[in-house]
């Protein structure tokens, strides 16, 4: 019984890690000032070149900004005092199918859409507190006036 449960555990661990690795969404290509990434409840300083995963929340301080390239070549630039939640990301680099859902809770965000928005526009969605954005292969800026919240500071 023991070896069996062990191997099941090992298999599950494998599944978990591979699923997590598959959710790698992108890389922090530039950063200034205070930038943090919240992952599974833990916030840490976002280093240059660090990986960003689906479900991460990126925060920038009053002096902060961050440039992120996602795996499908979506480019993001978050301005100061921003809270960007990357809710869902998947991208198959062979079929170019996948999903991108992100919410700008406050602050500013410039977006250059990537391969996902080109191949399957319905799978790309940006949100703000008041609206949902549908995107067809394009570039745009989102600005959300922030209401101060305890959880906002990076």
């Amino acid at each position: 019984m023991k070896p069996l449960s062990l191997s099941i555990f090992a298999a599950m661990a494998c599944l978990f890690t591979s699923a997590y690795a598959a959710d790698e969404a992108g890389i922090i290509k530039s950063r200034q000032g205070t930038v943090s990434v919240e992952r599974q409840g833990t916030r840490s300083n976002a280093e240059l070149g660090a990986k960003v995963y689906a479900t991460d929340i990126v925060r920038t301080g009053a002096d902060g900004s961050a440039g992120i390239t996602l795996r499908d070549n979506t480019l993001l630039s978050a301005g100061p005092n921003s809270v960007l939640a990357l809710e869902q990301f998947s991208f198959d680099s062979t079929t170019y199918q996948g999903k991108l859902n992100a919410t700008l809770r406050k602050g500013s965000l410039a977006v250059v859409s990537g391969k996902l928005a080109k191949t399957s526009p319905e799978s790309v969605q940006f949100r703000t507190p008041a609206t949902i954005l549908g995107v067809r292969g394009t570039e745009f800026v989102i600005e959300v006036e922030g209401m101060a919240g305890d959880n906002d500071a990076p």
Partner: peptide, 21 residues
């Protein structure tokens, strides 16, 4: 909130729909 659509460096303009939640 504001959303502004921009042209690409090559001048191509795509489309964004902004819908109230």
């Amino acid at each position: 909130e504001r959303v502004v659509l921009l042209p690409s460096p090559e001048g191509v303009v795509g489309e964004v729909s902004v819908t109230q939640i």
